[in-house]
């Protein structure tokens, strides 16, 4: 079972036990689970119990609603692509299929190459990727919009989780996923790139 599913399923099992009146202690429950999961499971169950039941649904502002609609459209597009039976390829595979280098694709999109490479590594929040970029990627990579949405959500190519610092060779921790805006700013864009995406940046 996938890691996240296991923890969710274990938490539901624990809650079901408590709801049925069996007041089994957290430590006792965790001790019955696989040894390699215990520390993580205990921390998560504690977090989950502290938060308790569902909160009342929030009343969304117009801006939050627009953001949420963007997220749902993204998930729906990827989902439509998956159920259509078409193969799901990640962004790197779609680009490779067109025999375009990451640098060339970035130039065509007027996007800093670091941003595009970071997106391909799955280290840019997909929900923050502007619609305009999704449309442009679909155009340049000769793919449907839903294929691009599915590609953004598909697992990136497998890489080593630890990287080496280019300056001193010391191993660096796993790269942090960031929003599109932040990835853009951190990539030190040229003035042309800045102008091309200015309307999508805060």
């Amino acid at each position: 079972m996938e890691e996240r599913s296991y923890f969710v399923e274990a938490a539901l099992r624990y809650e079901a036990l408590l709801e049925s009146g069996q007041l089994i202690g957290l430590d006792t429950f965790v001790a019955q689970e696989p040894a390699e999961t215990r520390d993580e499971l205990r921390a998560f169950l504690e977090f989950n119990l502290t938060l308790g039941e569902l909160d009342e649904p929030a009343v969304l502002t117009a801006e939050q609603e627009a953001r949420a609609d963007h997220v749902i459209a993204l998930a729906r597009g990827a989902w439509e692509h998956t159920i259509s039976g078409a193969p799901v390829q990640n962004l790197t595979q779609l680009r490779d299929a067109q025999q375009i280098t990451v640098g060339r694709l970035a130039r065509q999109l007027k996007l800093p190459v670091d941003v595009l490479a970071r997106m391909e590594r799955g280290k840019v929040f997909v929900a923050s990727v502007p619609n305009r970029l999704i449309e442009q990627l679909a155009q340049v990579l000769h793919a449907s919009r839903s294929a691009i949405q599915a590609a953004l959500l598909a697992p990136p190519p497998a890489t080593r989780s630890a990287r080496l610092n280019a300056v001193d060779g010391i191993s660096e921790g796993e790269e942090q996923a960031v929003s599109f805006d932040r990835a853009f700013v951190e990539s030190e864009p040229t003035s042309e790139e800045q102008a091309a995406w200015a309307t999508h940046l805060p």
Binding site: R67, H70, V71, I72, A75, F125, V126, A127, S128, L153
Partner: peptide, 13 residues
Amino acid sequence: EDAVSEIQLKTIQ
């Protein structure tokens, strides 16, 4: 807000 949107997306997935 970006983090919340990403959490929404991951939950729907």
